[in-house]
Design a protein around this nucleic acid. Structure first.
Lengths: 248, 248
DNA sequence: CCGCCAACCTGATCCAGGTCAACGCGCGGC
DNA sequence: GCCGCGCGTTGACCTGGATCAGGTTGGCGG
């Protein structure tokens, strides 16, 4: 991750009641759930560095950068992608508040992809080596890391199948909706923080197909689209379209 | 994993020089590389259970089964897959000797897919909870587990892109070749242990397209096909076709 | 206010790969 | 030997989505 002066760590409060300042941070949340006490949480928070905001278009890490840290998104959206031989962008994922980026860098000690801020983004950055060391003393933390990694394996398997453009669009919208809901945002009205082209590169469609897909869903009364604002109107119908992909 | 009588564990030799009996086991290999001594290796081997052979078509685990163990393939080939709503098989991977199955089960404590033996298969089975516990005392083992998990994330990302049928076929063959080579098998002559349909379901193609793809590669002089026996004739050409996908 | 540009939408055409149908071939059972 | 049956191959045709080519909209700088 860039160590540029614009992202120097902010001071971390070490006074007991301030743990909640990082309430969107997946690890803290997980550890709380697993019943760790404040002392142990403080140990975890010593490893955390809250970055200053990355602004839109700024790189968080680049393909080939040395892997040192993973990060939980605190606010904003992060896009990860690689460029194939012909320079076309392959979007691998969008990361919303509470989600963790960088895990794929572990195996080679380098990030295998780029991560870029789609809007103003603040991260909780964790030194991975320190965290791994801490995990040897906190089995719950180790478990949580294993779980996060395993989740990502399953997530990637979703993109894989050969589904129709409409199924992909529906699954994409439903997935966003659920993830927003899980973080306390409205599940039925949200804003697409990425361009149509980004969505297309993620769903392995042409940008035109995304456009037509959204239009078709709107014409069929499943959603309402106004530029980047989306309203899910007929959730059951969307879910049923998405079911082939999301498998629940 | 099935605990049926036909797969009861074989006795584990606890005499020092027998560690190599598990030379295809990824963990032993990894630990040796990281300089662990025999005492620590013995601890690891206590967790290992060498299964009796699964025969062709036999399930190793099923979607929804309780996750308890991961396993390294000692011999044979394992296919993992899920069935989509219409019952069509989505193959997620083929696992050759030395490769590890079951990691995707960690996040939900259940296997999210099925694993089946494509031919006679012997496994090294590791209780995951014991292994995680041991990992808290062996940082190198923990690291190796993180690395394995992270690898799988990246592996899954490969299937994702929208590539042509020929690129997919070439990448598939090159990948098999490299993996066989890494285990000391011939890289240029090997046997496809799976049906054309399996390959098709893995590459998200129709079986007919796989057939035609192989034929085209043969007509162009890149490979020789005789039923399930494959010979890679023009490796550079194959590699260059595969490069878009394998990215090296 | 205008001009510009990126993002987005829409229609026309094309083609890779899916689908359907038929056939070959090798192997196990009897 | 002969049958039956997966598996694999091949050919003919069809179609979903890519590609190409404009056209629209809205936000921003001057």
């Amino acid at each position: 991750m860039d160590a540029g002066t614009s992202h120097r760590p902010q001071p971390i409060a070490d006074d007991g009641d301030d743990f909640n300042f990082c309430s969107t941070c997946a690890f803290s949340a997980a550890c709380l759930k697993h019943g760790y006490d404040k002392g142990q949480l403080r140990e975890l928070h010593v490893l955390v560095e809250h970055t200053e905001p990355y602004h839109e278009g700024e790189y968080i890490f680049r393909e080939g950068d040395r892997f040192e840290a993973i990060a939980a998104v605190r606010s904003g959206t992060v896009k990860t992608f690689v460029n194939d031989i012909e320079g076309r962008e392959q979007v691998q994922g969008f990361f919303l508040p509470g989600e963790v980026i960088g895990l794929s860098g572990i195996s080679e000690a380098r990030y295998p992809s780029n991560a870029i801020a789609l809007e103003s983004v603040v991260l909780c950055r964790f030194s991975f080596s320190s965290m791994a060391m801490l995990a040897t003393r906190m089995p719950g933390l180790q478990q949580q890391l294993f779980r996060l990694l395993s989740q990502d394996i399953n997530k990637a398997a979703l993109l894989a199948g050969n589904y129709s453009a409409d199924e992909r669009m529906a699954a994409f919208l439903v997935s966003l909706s659920r993830r927003y809901a899980a973080r306390g945002f409205s599940p039925n009205r949200f804003r697409l923080t990425m361009t149509r082209t980004d969505i297309a590169n993620y769903l392995r469609l042409a940008a035109e197909s995304v456009s037509r897909g959204l239009r078709r869903l709107q014409d069929d009364g499943l959603i309402r689209v106004d530029r980047r604002d989306i309203e899910l109107v007929d959730r059951p119908a969307l879910e049923s379209l998405a079911r082939t992909i999301l498998r629940d």
